[in-house]
Computed example of a mutant assay.
Amino acid sequence: MTYGATTVLHGVNLDVARGEVVALLGPNGAGKTTTIEILEGFRMRSAGDVRVLGTDPARGDETWRARVGVVLQSWRDHAKWPVRAFLAHFGSLYAPYSTARVTRPRDVDELLAAVGLAEHGGKRVGQLSGGQRRRLDVAVGIVGRPEVLFLDEPTTGFDPEARQEFHELVRTLADAEDTTILLTTHDLDEAEKLADRIVILAKGRIVADGAPEELARRVESTAEVRWTLDGERRTSATGTPTRFVRELFERYGDAVDKLEVRRATLEDTYLAMVHAAETGGDDAGLPALGAPAEPVPAAEVAS
C-alpha cells in the first residue's frame, strides 16, 4: 500500500479464521488503521489481493456490508437523537438482510443491556458520558449481527468496569455467535486477554504473529539479572537465570550485592521488536517472537 512515493504496508499476509479474535498491535504509523480500512472497504489498496467473507471489500455490495460490523475510533456527533431511537434506526437498515441463519437486527433493549446502557435508552446521545458514548459506538457496530467485526481502539475512554464488561461481550460474540473479530489496540493486557492471536505491525510489516500463550512462553525464557559488584552496577540478559545466579555466587560469593532478577514481559518484547524493526538493529537480547514466513501481498478474513 502506497501514498504517493511513501510505502505504508509491505506485503502484509494475514489469514483470519471464522470465529477467531485477532489483535493488531503496533506503534502509531505502523499501518494498523490503513490495514483495517482496506479490509473494511473504506480505503482502496494500491496492490495485492484482499478477501473478507470471500469478497473483495473494494467491490462489496450492500448485502456484503450487512455482514460486516465496524466500530471506528470516533463517530460524527448525533447528539439530539434519543439513544434507543438512534440504535433502532441503525438496526432497521439491516432488516432486509436477514437470512435463514442470521436474524437481523438484534433486539434493541437486549443490545442496550449487553453494552451496559439499559438505563440510558431514553437519554439523548449528547447527554451520555464519553465512556457511555463509546459503548453506544460498539452497540451500533454489532446491531446487525455482523459475521466479521472490526474494532478500532474500542475501549478508549472506558473505565475498568466498562472495559471488563466489553471484554466479556467480545468473548461472547466470538464463542457463542462465531463472530470473527479483528481489533486494534495499544493495550497489551487487553490483547492478551481477548485475542486468540496477536499480530504485531511495525513500519508496515508483520514482525510477529502468534497466540498469546506462545508469545508468553517465549517471553518467559528471558530474564534480566542486575547486581552490584565492587560498587559497580552490572546487568546481564540470560535465558537461564537460576543457573546464572548460582554461577555468579560461586564465582564472587558475598561480593555480590543488591541482586535483582527481572523476567521480560510481553510489553518488553513488543517494544524491543518494534524498536528493532524501526531501526534495523537487534532486539537488545530479548526473545524474538518469530517473524512469519516470507510475506506475500494478500489478506483474507473468515473466507
Rank of each mutant, 00 (worst) to 15 (best):
T2H: 12
T2D: 08
V8G: 02
R18F: 11
G19C: 07
E20A: 06
L25S: 01
P27W: 09
P27Q: 10
P27R: 08
N28S: 15
K32E: 00
T33Q: 04
I38F: 03
F42K: 11
F42Y: 14
R43C: 06
G48P: 03
G69P: 01
G69K: 00
V70Y: 11
A79I: 13
K80R: 12
F86T: 09
L87H: 03
A88V: 08
H89Y: 15
Y94F: 13
T99V: 03
R101G: 13
R106C: 10
A113C: 02
R124E: 07
R124W: 05
G130E: 15
L149Y: 10
F158M: 03
P160D: 05
A174G: 03
D175C: 13
L182N: 06
H186Y: 07
D187R: 03
D187I: 08
D187G: 11
A191N: 00
K193P: 08
D196C: 08
G210A: 13
A223E: 07
T228W: 11
D230A: 14
A237L: 14
R243V: 09
L248G: 01
L248S: 02
V261N: 10
T265Y: 03
L266H: 07
L266K: 09
D268L: 04
M273F: 07
V296S: 10
A299C: 00
